[in-house]
Nucleic acid binder design. Sequence first.
DNA 1: AACGCTTTCGGTAGCGTTTCCAGTATATTG
DNA 2: CAATATACTGGAAACGCTACCGAAAGCGTT
Lengths: 340, 340
Amino acid sequence: MSKPATITDVARLAGVSITTVSRILNNKPDVAQATRQRVLDAIQQLNFTPHVQAQRLAAGKSQSIAVLYPSDSLGFTELEFEFFVGASQVATKAGFLFNLIVTPMNEQTLLNLYRSNQVDGVILMEVHLNDRRVAVLRERGYPFVLIGRCTENTGLSTIDLDFETAMLLACEHLYSLGHRHIGFTNLIGARAGYGPAIRSLWGYQRACEQFGIEPIYRELKPTIDELYRATEALLDEQPGMTAMITLHTGPLVGAIRAAQNRGLCVPDQFSIVGILSDQMAQFISPPLTAISFPAQLMGSRAAQMLIRKLQDADYEDKQVLLKPRLVIRDSTAPARTSER
Amino acid sequence: MSKPATITDVARLAGVSITTVSRILNNKPDVAQATRQRVLDAIQQLNFTPHVQAQRLAAGKSQSIAVLYPSDSLGFTELEFEFFVGASQVATKAGFLFNLIVTPMNEQTLLNLYRSNQVDGVILMEVHLNDRRVAVLRERGYPFVLIGRCTENTGLSTIDLDFETAMLLACEHLYSLGHRHIGFTNLIGARAGYGPAIRSLWGYQRACEQFGIEPIYRELKPTIDELYRATEALLDEQPGMTAMITLHTGPLVGAIRAAQNRGLCVPDQFSIVGILSDQMAQFISPPLTAISFPAQLMGSRAAQMLIRKLQDADYEDKQVLLKPRLVIRDSTAPARTSER
DNA sequence: AACGCTTTCGGTAGCGTTTCCAGTATATTG
DNA sequence: CAATATACTGGAAACGCTACCGAAAGCGTT
């Protein structure tokens, strides 16, 4: 574990000043081709790698970004993971360090992240319509992007799935299959200001109006048990219900099991549409008809936006809204005319 | 985005030298109670947070660890994710930055990670029995720990699940339910030196000997399709097979579907045992009897070991082998005496 | 021959900490 | 009461790099 070579060693070996070496390291102009080669050889020979802490201290930048996913929220499924992988890949490629922070942060610790130069910018997940974190960061002018949206998004960089359209698509699909009684179990938090919940509800309500069907609605916590019980309850109360949409990702099996336990075969007697990543949808039996959740894409786009924002002083903030895509698999089927 | 306060500002405001402030920041002794309070007040008042890059440069430590998960290997499931979360939580709590690196690294870039002071130590995942990375790092004396094991582990810090015992447990469970023809689909790579595959195979072979049953064995890639086809093939070739164990985590549904497609109800006519995290096992229909894979625990233990190794000069390397636990759910049932 | 331009390079002052060493005042000891 | 230990504090040199500024050298222009 001998001490690694420093820029001084390289300079000495190449017979130049450290300034020149620094120029080459940072691809600055004003250096003769011959000198450049000599320095590169020296670097090679010494196995030199610049000391990142020193670089960052001198440059006044941390060259790293973080994703904040407060783990007290919904827990982890593959979906969150796909966000991280997407962001991580982009960051690494752009020469940024990627930090995943799952510990919930208060305002202080959030600001300290910037003040201590730990990160140049962050990606916020699980944002609420009226998110304190957003207010605090915006006020201080610290760079960040949101996965999700707030009520007021001007001047913010956001990326989000268009949940409203997603619900429309799902309803439309089921309606066209002949279903006229379509339930919807939403994530909890529509009242508390949780974006996906609210916007999904809007979409569902609009679809119901448009198709002239009666809403059958529940909000519940994301556990298998909750969804199981809720599905049972809905089936009891709404004997005509032949299909269901749920925003719950992992716990979705609860709905399938509840239906099957009633002797309702999915999809022949009961159709289910979810919102999941393609991989997750395939890992379920039966393979799920679902709005495809492009989590990895969203993660990488978010990282791209953030990094461009950091590098390009007059980068213009954008609010990206991804068009949802419905992938039809084996959990939806035409409604039987003579129902149950 | 005004410039954050520095240690000099704090020192000036408190009327002390920066040395004293530094002492307090690092909980060093030799500072009067009154002075400490005065400085703490100043820190509070200025919202001061030490500049991490500067701290690390001066201290010669990066205070960060990384997990290397080469994404070209098996892809991502919830399982990998749980590793990361476990490690990340421990790291954050210990004041370490946590870096997730999914880009595959060659020897050079791996070493550069240390040389450039980006990390103090790493956690290696997906290690092979004869892993180049291990050789390189060991030779240089760079700190690391393994999730998994090598052939020769003396002087290494490792943590691994006892796959051999795991297979014994699974077989035992099925045997005691009356199954006498038990298939096993393994991850690919037993020959190439992939630890889990090899050790599972050993366990399976031992169990077969012990219970006097005939091995029914396949190695395949971790995709749903592969597992589906393999299960079909096994059912064709081995009409007596009433149960199956698989090391494939996510794609496991392929086996379930294949059985169900044959009209074999799981578990009444066909039993399946997997190796999954508890959460994943519950997300499958039917809830899966499985060896519980304590991924999060393993991640956090690995991080703990690494950090202790970094902080404690004479820390003794340990090879931890976690005892597996079988959780019985609804995918296994007694073998029917009059089979198919 | 004097001037200015371009290209290429080096000197050096930071960046914000930690840490070693030396110093002062106070307390303890024989 | 001198001598020595003890508690506390400050000065200044690193840590390894970037970035500003200025200088030297080569070349064409007037």
